[in-house]
């Protein structure tokens, strides 16, 4: 995960961290201080790419109620990365290969209908997740001696992102987003009303499979920043927050990406000046946004209900 030259820079920063990286609360000079470190520039670039991809894919994922599938794909990326380290190939390859393979498997699995079948299906998903994590533990133990690397794979690290990794992320993000843009309209149609879409000749099943593969790519990218366990922070939280604030598709899509970017930048920035992990800040900011949005919506409902109760006839008669 940590390339040699950057590990040096990050190590120097870590060694001097308690003294030097103290916020002056002057925003401009703080940001300038942060950007002096090349690894931080890489981290911010990677964070930007990842946030845009995660926001876009996450918006469709939440709309399609596939967050359990997203969770599974994210978890599968852990054995992928650990296996890649064990085999000595690039970690990025491990992430992408395994999540795309898992996405194809999920897409190929038949959809079951009915309560009993569904309960046994969730048992299968639970078993698959636990087994994937167990395989990750096995790879780690076979490789031996990179216990700190394990927490990085699971919970993310922004210290060791190389410029090569940023380029790989950028290329993957461009391909993923281009494909998503290509299928966005029919996918939206198929998500909102699959039956009508199928009747109009939209290939619903194919779209669903393509979307899962794109989602796999997105989770592979996000896991490299937030770690396999915290992918949800960038995938689900911004989309859930935006969809709580507005029902209009275009607006909530834009809002999702804005929230994802803000969460990633804030998380990285605050983590730079503190001793605590970036995953904690990204999840906390994402969750705070979600809670605020939920409170905003509930508050709005309460106000409307009270207004209706106060002048019942006027409101009912209005339309």
């Amino acid at each position: 995960m940590v390339s040699a030259d950057l590990a040096g820079a990050a190590g120097r920063w870590l060694a001097s961290a308690p003294g030097s990286a103290v916020p002056t609360w002057n925003l401009v000079s703080d940001i300038r201080q942060m950007l002096m470190f090349p690894f931080m520039v890489h981290a911010l670039r990677a964070g930007t790419i990842v946030a845009v991809t995660a926001g876009a894919l996450g918006w469709f994922m939440v709309l399609r109620r596939q967050s359990f599938a997203g969770h599974t794909l994210a978890i599968v990326s852990f054995p992928g990365a650990a296996g890649a380290i064990l085999l000595g190939v690039s970690v990025s390859i491990g992430y992408f290969a395994v999540t795309i393979a898992a996405a194809l498997v999920i897409a190929a699995a038949p959809r079951s209908i009915g309560g009993r079948a569904r309960s046994s299906e969730s048992a299968i998903i639970g078993t698959v997740q636990a087994f994937a994590l167990a395989c990750g533990a096995l790879f780690v133990s076979l490789f031996g001696g990179f216990l700190n690397g394990v927490t990085d794979l699971l919970f993310g690290s922004f210290l060791g992102i190389s410029s090569g990794q940023v380029l790989v992320l950028l290329a993957a993000a461009v391909v993923t987003l281009a494909l998503l843009a290509l299928i966005a309209r029919p996918l939206f149609f198929a998500t909102v009303d699959p039956d009508v879409a199928a009747a109009r000749g939209v290939p619903v099943r194919l779209l669903s499979a393509v979307f899962l593969v794109l989602l796999g790519c997105a989770t592979a990218e996000v896991s490299q920043i937030t770690g396999a366990l915290l992918v949800f922070a960038l995938l689900v939280m911004p989309a859930a927050t935006a969809q709580r604030l507005t029902a209009r598709p275009a607006l909530s899509f834009t809002l999702t990406i804005a929230i994802a970017l803000a969460t990633a930048w804030l998380g990285l920035g605050v983590a730079f000046f503190s001793a605590y992990p970036v995953g904690f800040y990204i999840t906390t900011f994402g969750f705070a946004g979600f809670v605020l949005a939920s409170a905003w919506r509930e508050g709005g409902r309460l106000v409307r209900r009270r207004a209706r109760r106060r002048t019942p006839s006027a409101v009912v008669a209005a339309p």
Binding site: T151, L230, A233, M237, A240, P277, F280, T283, T284, F287
Partner: peptide, 26 residues
């Protein structure tokens, strides 16, 4: 149960794990 909102549960879990990493670092 089956009708629980999975985005709520997912957001809470992700935050729980984030808190876990904080405690791990501490």
């Amino acid at each position: 149960g089956e009708h629980a909102d999975d985005t709520v549960i997912g957001s809470v879990f992700a935050w729980m794990l984030g808190l876990g990493t904080l405690f791990l670092t501490i």
